[in-house]
């Protein structure tokens, strides 16, 4: 798995792009560390671009939940974009779709922050 990230709007919104499989302790640790770094920097608006995530298992789901909870604790929010049909189905089965805000495009996710 590879992780690319950037900030936009003068650092207000952080965007993490995940590629590959979000599985296993080692791979999810990289993601957990990246999220923790942004929280440490004071970021409160995170977009996770999942468009290139081809596989997700319970470790990956656990990492997403941890990220969501960490942001919620600091009064922040995480939005998901680009969920494939497989991952969307998995989110529905696990009822996580009720927990996460998911959008089709990055523009929609950005707009959702500004409307609050």
């Amino acid at each position: 798995m590879t992780i690319k990230s950037k900030t936009i709007q003068d650092g207000k919104i952080a965007i993490i792009e995940l590629r590959g499989a979000l599985i296993g302790d080692d791979l999810t640790d990289e993601f957990r560390d990246e999220v923790a770094d942004y929280i440490e920097q004071g970021n409160k608006c995170m977009i996770l671009n999942m468009k290139r995530v081809n596989y997700l298992n319970s470790s990956g789901i656990g990492a997403l939940i941890t990220a969501h909870t960490s942001y919620r604790k600091i009064g922040g929010e995480i939005k998901l974009i680009g969920l494939s049909s497989n991952i969307q189905n998995l989110m529905v089965i696990t009822r996580l779709i009720e927990v996460f805000d998911a959008y089709e495009t990055i523009e929609e996710a950005i707009k959702s922050f500004s409307t609050k």
Binding site: S58, I61, G62, I65, H68, T69, V99
Partner: peptide, 15 residues
């Protein structure tokens, strides 16, 4: 409860 107190593991069998 899992969302309020996330931890490693514990989801695999449930899944």
């Amino acid at each position: 409860d899992y969302i309020d107190h996330p931890r490693r593991g514990g989801l695999g069998i449930h899944l």
